[in-house]
Protein backbone atom coordinates (compact mmCIF):
# COMPACT_ATOMS: atom_id res chain seq x y z
CA UNK A 1 0.00 0.00 0.00
CA UNK A 2 1.36 3.36 -0.90
CA UNK A 3 1.58 6.19 1.60
CA UNK A 4 -0.59 9.09 0.45
CA UNK A 5 0.14 12.68 1.44
CA UNK A 6 -2.10 15.54 0.27
CA UNK A 7 -1.04 19.18 0.26
CA UNK A 8 -4.08 21.47 0.66
CA UNK A 9 -4.84 25.05 1.57
CA UNK A 10 -7.97 27.08 2.14
CA UNK A 11 -6.72 30.23 0.51
CA UNK A 12 -5.16 30.33 -2.93
CA UNK A 13 -1.64 31.67 -3.40
CA UNK A 14 -0.34 30.59 -0.01
CA UNK A 15 2.42 28.57 -1.64
CA UNK A 16 0.75 25.18 -1.89
CA UNK A 17 2.39 24.37 -5.21
CA UNK A 18 5.77 25.58 -3.94
CA UNK A 19 5.48 23.33 -0.90
CA UNK A 20 4.28 20.37 -2.97
CA UNK A 21 7.10 20.56 -5.52
CA UNK A 22 9.84 21.15 -2.93
CA UNK A 23 8.48 18.38 -0.77
CA UNK A 24 8.50 16.07 -3.78
CA UNK A 25 12.17 16.83 -4.38
CA UNK A 26 13.02 16.29 -0.70
CA UNK A 27 11.05 13.05 -0.50
CA UNK A 28 12.84 11.68 -3.55
CA UNK A 29 16.30 12.73 -2.31
CA UNK A 30 15.98 11.98 1.39
CA UNK A 31 13.34 9.37 1.79
CA UNK A 32 12.10 7.26 -1.07
CA UNK A 33 12.97 7.48 -4.75
CA UNK A 34 9.68 5.76 -5.56
CA UNK A 35 7.60 8.91 -5.04
CA UNK A 36 4.97 10.22 -7.44
CA UNK A 37 3.65 13.78 -7.55
CA UNK A 38 0.00 14.20 -8.62
CA UNK A 39 -1.42 17.60 -9.54
CA UNK A 40 -5.12 17.59 -8.65
CA UNK A 41 -5.59 21.35 -9.15
CA UNK A 42 -7.18 20.62 -12.51
CA UNK A 43 -8.40 24.17 -13.06
CA UNK A 44 -4.90 25.63 -12.81
CA UNK A 45 -2.33 22.81 -12.90
CA UNK A 46 0.99 24.55 -12.24
CA UNK A 47 3.27 21.86 -10.79
CA UNK A 48 4.66 21.15 -14.25
CA UNK A 49 6.12 24.67 -14.44
CA UNK A 50 8.57 23.73 -11.70
CA UNK A 51 10.09 20.94 -13.80
CA UNK A 52 11.91 22.51 -16.72
CA UNK A 53 13.18 19.21 -18.13
CA UNK A 54 9.94 17.32 -17.92
CA UNK A 55 9.36 14.84 -20.75
CA UNK A 56 5.81 13.89 -21.68
CA UNK A 57 5.42 10.17 -21.20
CA UNK A 58 1.71 9.62 -21.69
CA UNK A 59 -1.36 11.61 -22.52
CA UNK A 60 -4.94 10.39 -22.16
CA UNK A 61 -8.17 12.22 -22.82
CA UNK A 62 -10.45 12.23 -19.80
CA UNK A 63 -14.01 11.67 -20.84
CA UNK A 64 -17.37 11.54 -19.22
CA UNK A 65 -20.20 9.42 -20.58
CA UNK A 66 -23.08 11.69 -21.55
CA UNK A 67 -26.21 10.10 -22.99
CA UNK A 68 -27.69 11.17 -26.30
CA UNK A 69 -31.33 10.72 -27.20
CA UNK A 70 -32.14 8.77 -30.33
CA UNK A 71 -35.27 10.63 -31.41
CA UNK A 72 -36.37 7.84 -33.74
CA UNK A 73 -36.82 5.56 -30.74
CA UNK A 74 -37.90 8.15 -28.16
CA UNK A 75 -41.59 8.12 -27.25
CA UNK A 76 -41.35 11.46 -25.40
CA UNK A 77 -42.64 9.91 -22.18
CA UNK A 78 -40.47 12.28 -20.09
CA UNK A 79 -39.51 9.54 -17.65
CA UNK A 80 -35.83 10.43 -18.07
CA UNK A 81 -36.57 14.09 -17.30
CA UNK A 82 -38.22 12.99 -14.08
CA UNK A 83 -35.19 10.85 -13.14
CA UNK A 84 -32.59 13.52 -13.88
CA UNK A 85 -31.73 15.37 -10.66
CA UNK A 86 -29.55 17.86 -12.51
CA UNK A 87 -32.18 19.22 -14.93
CA UNK A 88 -29.95 18.26 -17.84
CA UNK A 89 -32.70 16.78 -20.02
CA UNK A 90 -35.27 18.70 -22.04
CA UNK A 91 -38.19 16.86 -23.62
CA UNK A 92 -41.11 18.70 -25.22
CA UNK A 93 -43.65 16.10 -26.38
CA UNK A 94 -45.96 18.27 -28.58
CA UNK A 95 -43.09 19.28 -30.84
CA UNK A 96 -41.12 16.03 -30.48
CA UNK A 97 -38.02 17.67 -29.12
CA UNK A 98 -35.56 15.86 -26.84
CA UNK A 99 -32.00 16.74 -25.90
CA UNK A 100 -29.45 16.48 -23.10
CA UNK A 101 -27.15 19.32 -22.02
CA UNK A 102 -23.67 17.87 -21.47
CA UNK A 103 -22.61 20.73 -19.18
CA UNK A 104 -25.32 19.86 -16.65
CA UNK A 105 -24.96 16.06 -16.87
CA UNK A 106 -23.21 14.32 -13.96
CA UNK A 107 -23.13 11.01 -15.77
CA UNK A 108 -25.01 9.24 -12.99
CA UNK A 109 -26.80 6.86 -15.35
CA UNK A 110 -30.27 7.37 -13.85
CA UNK A 111 -31.87 8.26 -17.19
CA UNK A 112 -30.65 4.95 -18.67
CA UNK A 113 -32.70 3.13 -16.03
CA UNK A 114 -35.64 5.44 -16.68
CA UNK A 115 -35.83 4.86 -20.43
CA UNK A 116 -38.12 1.98 -21.42
CA UNK A 117 -37.63 2.56 -25.14
CA UNK A 118 -33.89 1.99 -25.45
CA UNK A 119 -33.57 5.52 -26.85
CA UNK A 120 -30.53 6.61 -24.83
CA UNK A 121 -26.98 5.83 -25.80
CA UNK A 122 -23.99 7.08 -23.83
CA UNK A 123 -21.26 8.81 -25.78
CA UNK A 124 -17.88 9.96 -24.53
CA UNK A 125 -17.66 13.65 -23.91
CA UNK A 126 -14.22 15.16 -23.44
CA UNK A 127 -13.80 17.01 -20.15
CA UNK A 128 -10.05 17.13 -19.66
CA UNK A 129 -6.64 15.67 -20.21
CA UNK A 130 -4.41 13.48 -18.05
CA UNK A 131 -0.66 13.64 -18.68
CA UNK A 132 2.26 11.76 -17.17
CA UNK A 133 5.75 13.29 -17.16
CA UNK A 134 9.27 12.13 -16.41
CA UNK A 135 10.89 14.93 -14.49
CA UNK A 136 14.42 13.56 -14.15
CA UNK A 137 14.08 12.26 -10.62
CA UNK A 138 11.61 10.16 -8.66
CA UNK A 139 8.57 8.60 -10.22
CA UNK A 140 7.55 11.77 -12.03
CA UNK A 141 4.45 13.94 -12.28
CA UNK A 142 0.89 13.00 -13.12
CA UNK A 143 -1.30 15.94 -14.02
CA UNK A 144 -5.02 16.42 -14.59
CA UNK A 145 -6.08 19.38 -16.69
CA UNK A 146 -9.68 20.55 -17.06
CA UNK A 147 -10.75 21.44 -20.58
CA UNK A 148 -11.43 25.16 -20.72
CA UNK A 149 -15.16 25.81 -20.50
CA UNK A 150 -15.87 22.44 -18.89
CA UNK A 151 -17.29 22.36 -15.40
CA UNK A 152 -16.51 18.77 -14.47
CA UNK A 153 -13.64 19.13 -11.99
CA UNK A 154 -14.36 16.12 -9.80
CA UNK A 155 -14.54 13.50 -12.57
CA UNK A 156 -11.13 14.65 -13.85
CA UNK A 157 -9.67 14.48 -10.33
CA UNK A 158 -11.22 11.06 -9.76
CA UNK A 159 -9.73 9.76 -13.00
CA UNK A 160 -6.25 11.03 -12.11
CA UNK A 161 -6.43 9.59 -8.61
CA UNK A 162 -7.48 6.23 -10.01
CA UNK A 163 -4.44 6.26 -12.30
CA UNK A 164 -2.14 7.12 -9.39
CA UNK A 165 -3.49 4.35 -7.16
CA UNK A 166 -0.56 2.21 -5.99
CA UNK A 167 1.68 3.56 -8.77
CA UNK A 168 4.44 4.41 -6.27
CA UNK A 169 5.23 3.77 -2.64
CA UNK A 170 4.76 7.43 -1.73
CA UNK A 171 2.17 9.54 -3.54
CA UNK A 172 2.05 13.29 -3.01
CA UNK A 173 -1.19 15.00 -4.10
CA UNK A 174 -1.42 18.73 -4.76
CA UNK A 175 -5.07 19.64 -4.08
CA UNK A 176 -6.99 22.66 -5.44
CA UNK A 177 -7.49 25.62 -3.07
CA UNK A 178 -10.71 26.08 -1.13
CA UNK A 179 -13.04 23.61 0.57
CA UNK A 180 -15.46 22.62 -2.18
CA UNK A 181 -16.27 19.12 -3.37
CA UNK A 182 -13.22 19.04 -5.67
CA UNK A 183 -11.02 19.50 -2.59
CA UNK A 184 -12.89 16.69 -0.84
CA UNK A 185 -12.29 14.43 -3.85
CA UNK A 186 -8.56 15.26 -3.82
CA UNK A 187 -8.09 14.85 -0.07
CA UNK A 188 -10.21 11.70 0.28
CA UNK A 189 -8.31 8.61 1.49
CA UNK A 190 -5.14 10.59 2.31
CA UNK A 191 -2.95 9.13 5.03
CA UNK A 192 -1.78 12.59 5.99
CA UNK A 193 -2.85 16.11 5.00
CA UNK A 194 -0.47 19.08 4.95
CA UNK A 195 -2.30 22.39 5.13
CA UNK A 196 -0.37 25.37 3.85
CA UNK A 197 -1.32 28.79 5.19
CA UNK A 198 0.13 32.27 5.51
CA UNK A 199 0.04 34.38 8.69
CA UNK A 200 -2.44 36.96 7.38
CA UNK A 201 -6.12 37.56 8.18
CA UNK A 202 -7.16 36.06 4.82
CA UNK A 203 -4.90 33.07 5.42
CA UNK A 204 -6.32 32.50 8.90
CA UNK A 205 -9.95 32.88 7.85
CA UNK A 206 -9.63 30.36 5.02
CA UNK A 207 -7.52 28.00 7.16
CA UNK A 208 -10.28 27.78 9.79
CA UNK A 209 -12.81 26.63 7.18
CA UNK A 210 -10.34 24.13 5.73
CA UNK A 211 -9.57 22.72 9.21
CA UNK A 212 -13.31 22.30 9.78
CA UNK A 213 -13.53 20.25 6.59
CA UNK A 214 -10.47 18.06 7.28
CA UNK A 215 -11.70 17.42 10.84
CA UNK A 216 -15.11 16.46 9.52
CA UNK A 217 -13.37 14.00 7.19
CA UNK A 218 -11.45 12.72 10.22
CA UNK A 219 -8.02 12.82 8.61
CA UNK A 220 -4.69 13.43 10.36
CA UNK A 221 -3.15 16.75 9.43
CA UNK A 222 -0.57 19.39 10.27
CA UNK A 223 0.00 22.96 9.19
CA UNK A 224 2.91 24.55 7.34
CA UNK A 225 3.11 28.31 7.83
CA UNK A 226 4.55 29.78 4.66
CA UNK A 227 5.70 33.38 4.28
CA UNK A 228 6.34 33.54 8.05
CA UNK A 229 7.26 37.06 9.13
CA UNK A 230 4.58 38.71 7.01
CA UNK A 231 1.32 39.65 8.71
CA UNK A 232 0.53 39.01 12.38
CA UNK A 233 0.46 36.33 15.09
CA UNK A 234 -3.25 35.51 14.92
CA UNK A 235 -2.64 32.27 12.98
CA UNK A 236 -0.23 31.05 15.67
CA UNK A 237 -2.74 31.85 18.44
CA UNK A 238 -5.45 29.96 16.60
CA UNK A 239 -3.27 26.89 16.05
CA UNK A 240 -2.24 26.85 19.70
CA UNK A 241 -5.83 27.19 20.93
CA UNK A 242 -6.94 24.37 18.68
CA UNK A 243 -3.97 22.17 19.52
CA UNK A 244 -2.93 21.83 15.89
CA UNK A 245 0.62 20.80 15.03
CA UNK A 246 2.79 23.29 13.22
CA UNK A 247 4.88 21.08 10.95
CA UNK A 248 7.21 23.89 9.96
CA UNK A 249 7.51 27.62 9.44
CA UNK A 250 9.03 28.81 6.18
CA UNK A 251 10.12 32.44 6.39
CA UNK A 252 9.20 35.04 3.79
CA UNK A 253 12.15 36.30 1.82
CA UNK A 254 12.07 38.46 -1.29
CA UNK A 255 14.87 36.49 -2.89
CA UNK A 256 12.86 33.27 -2.42
CA UNK A 257 9.80 34.96 -3.89
CA UNK A 258 11.72 35.85 -7.03
CA UNK A 259 13.05 32.31 -7.46
CA UNK A 260 9.60 30.78 -6.97
CA UNK A 261 8.21 33.21 -9.50
CA UNK A 262 10.51 31.63 -12.06
CA UNK A 263 9.28 28.18 -11.14
CA UNK A 264 12.39 27.09 -9.33
CA UNK A 265 12.58 24.22 -6.84
CA UNK A 266 14.68 26.09 -4.33
CA UNK A 267 15.51 23.04 -2.18
CA UNK A 268 17.67 21.76 -5.03
CA UNK A 269 20.12 24.62 -4.72
CA UNK A 270 19.64 26.16 -1.31
CA UNK A 271 20.57 23.98 1.67
CA UNK A 272 19.08 26.35 4.23
CA UNK A 273 15.78 26.24 2.44
CA UNK A 274 15.90 22.44 1.99
CA UNK A 275 16.15 21.98 5.76
CA UNK A 276 12.53 23.11 6.18
CA UNK A 277 11.34 20.23 4.04
CA UNK A 278 13.56 17.70 5.76
CA UNK A 279 11.88 18.75 9.00
CA UNK A 280 8.42 18.34 7.48
CA UNK A 281 9.32 14.86 6.25
CA UNK A 282 10.73 13.91 9.66
CA UNK A 283 7.49 14.97 11.34
CA UNK A 284 5.36 13.02 8.87
CA UNK A 285 7.53 9.93 9.34
CA UNK A 286 7.16 10.21 13.11
CA UNK A 287 3.44 10.25 12.59
CA UNK A 288 3.59 7.29 10.21
CA UNK A 289 5.51 5.16 12.69
CA UNK A 290 3.04 5.78 15.49
Amino acid sequence: MSFKITVASGKGGTGKTTVATNLYWSLVKNFDNDTLLVDCDVEEPDDLLFFKNAILRSEVKVTQAVPEINTSKCTYCRKCVEYCEYNAITVIPPVQYASIAPDLCHSCGACLYACQDDALIEKDHEIGLMSGYDVGFGKGLLEGRLKIGSAAQTPVIRRVKKEALDAASVILFDAPPGTSCSVVTSVLDADFVIMVTEPTPFGLHDLKIAVELIREMDLPFGVVINKAGLGDRAVYDYLEDEGIDILEEIPFNEEYARKFSEGMILSRIDKNYAIHYQKIIRKILEFKQQ
Binding site: E44, L49, G149, S150, A151, G263
Partner: peptide, 29 residues
Protein backbone atom coordinates in the same frame (compact mmCIF):
# COMPACT_ATOMS: atom_id res chain seq x y z
CA UNK B 1 -10.08 31.80 -8.67
CA UNK B 2 -9.75 29.15 -11.36
CA UNK B 3 -11.61 28.70 -14.64
CA UNK B 4 -14.43 26.39 -13.56
CA UNK B 5 -18.13 26.69 -12.91
CA UNK B 6 -18.10 29.48 -10.29
CA UNK B 7 -15.96 31.65 -12.57
CA UNK B 8 -18.34 31.13 -15.48
CA UNK B 9 -21.24 32.02 -13.15
CA UNK B 10 -19.45 35.22 -12.13
CA UNK B 11 -19.18 36.26 -15.80
CA UNK B 12 -22.79 35.95 -16.94
CA UNK B 13 -24.11 39.26 -18.21
CA UNK B 14 -21.20 41.45 -17.11
CA UNK B 15 -19.77 44.40 -19.00
CA UNK B 16 -16.20 44.70 -17.79
CA UNK B 17 -13.49 42.44 -16.46
CA UNK B 18 -10.42 43.44 -14.48
CA UNK B 19 -7.70 40.78 -14.57
CA UNK B 20 -5.22 40.81 -11.71
CA UNK B 21 -2.03 39.19 -13.01
CA UNK B 22 0.83 38.17 -10.80
CA UNK B 23 4.43 38.23 -11.91
CA UNK B 24 5.29 34.54 -11.62
CA UNK B 25 5.55 31.59 -13.98
CA UNK B 26 2.36 30.06 -12.60
CA UNK B 27 0.64 33.45 -12.60
CA UNK B 28 1.51 33.78 -16.28
CA UNK B 29 0.19 30.35 -17.20
Amino acid sequence: PGIGCPVIASLAGIHKILLVAESSESGYH
